[in-house]
């Protein structure tokens, strides 16, 4: 990808053909990306999984057989029934349909993943750019604080935060966001440092471009690829982390249909009522797998330098 991309200048309304012509090179590389991507089985598998779960997020409430079961209905007469034609994944300890809860759990997990990654981006990217551009004591301070946060495994720090704030979806999101941003600071800072000394940035500065212009025209667009790759991976990891907090009992709380919490309750009913913790676990696995494969595939085409790593 070249620097200062043309796409950011507003295009006057002209014909489609004209637009195509003007963006021929971008389109060509996009087509190449698509081609490379679609040839990789694992990337396509990842994309497929992610799209499938996104679809469930969108249409979940309309396709599940017992939507009220996700809001805390009670059918004690049919509790802990094995999977059958009506209850594909069986029922839980208050007689709720596990299939319904797993499908609607997609929404909870995606919501957490998206918000956590978004907050991490909003905090991490500006800090990374500031650290990279400013240098000196400011960079030193930002990076040392980042280091301190990175010195504790995220899950442990999140555990400590949630232990203090109390369990719940909001607190879990807060805790995870709090431990997630430092990764972006590191990524963006090193990228900014590298870009800062590129000839085209020097050139822009020489012709009198302000810092804001350099950031928005030259630095940010070039950070997009690594951010997309990392964010895609992080979606999966944040969902996994949220499920982990749920499993410990400090994440989303019932009757919220959250996968980790479902496994946590379901394990008390192992081994006889195996379906209870099996299906939510499978859902986590497939979601995280999807995002990881997708992230891998995206890295292969967007960031080929680090390909084999």
């Amino acid at each position: 990808m070249s620097a200062g991309s043309e796409a950011t200048t507003p295009a006057p309304r002209r014909g489609l053909a004209d637009w195509r012509q003007r963006h021929a090179s971008t389109l060509r590389s996009l087509r190449l990306y698509a081609h490379t991507f679609s040839r990789s089985v694992s990337s396509m598998l990842g994309l497929g999984l992610v799209l499938l779960f996104f679809l469930l997020v969108l249409i979940g409430p309309w396709i599940v057989p017992f939507p009220e079961d996700a809001r805390g209905a009670v059918n004690l007469d049919i509790k802990l029934q094995a999977p059958d034609a009506t209850h594909w994944f069986g029922t839980d300890e208050v007689g709720n349909d596990i299939f319904t809860r797993v499908v609607l759990g997609t929404r909870v997990s995606f919501q957490i993943g998206l918000i956590v990654v978004a907050i991490a981006l909003v905090i991490g990217v500006p800090l990374g750019i500031v650290a990279g551009l400013a240098g000196g004591w400011l960079r030193e301070t930002i990076m040392r604080v980042t280091d301190v946060f990175l010195s504790v495994p995220g899950l442990v720090l999140a555990l400590a935060v949630v232990a203090v704030l109390g369990p719940g979806i909001l607190n879990a999101i807060l805790a995870l966001a709090l431990v997630w941003w430092p990764g972006y600071v590191r990524l963006i800072e090193s990228k900014t440092l590298a870009l800062k000394s590129e000839p085209f940035v020097d050139a822009a500065r020489a012709v009198g471009a302000g810092t804001a212009r350099i950031v928005f025209l030259h630095i940010l667009p070039n950070c997009v690829s690594p951010i997309v790759v990392k964010a895609s991976m992080d979606m999966g990891l944040a969902i996994l982390a949220a499920a982990s907090l749920g499993f410990i009992g400090l994440g989303a709380q019932p009757p919220h249909p959250e996968w980790g919490a479902m496994i946590s309750i379901g394990r008390h009913y192992l081994p006889d009522f195996w379906w209870y913790s099996t299906f939510p676990g499978l859902a986590i696995y497939l979601t995280v797998l999807g995002f990881n494969l997708l992230g891998d595939g995206l890295r292969d085409i967007l960031d080929p330098k680090t390909r084999s790593r």
Binding site: G72, A73, V74, V94, G166, P167, Q253, P255
Partner: peptide, 23 residues
């Protein structure tokens, strides 16, 4: 579970219940 029962039982009275788990 009792909380879930409560949600269910109070629906006919048009009373809703918010479940708040705390340590």
């Amino acid at each position: 579970k009792m909380g879930l029962v409560l949600i269910d039982n109070l629906k006919p009275l048009n009373i809703s219940v918010k479940m708040v788990p705390l340590t």
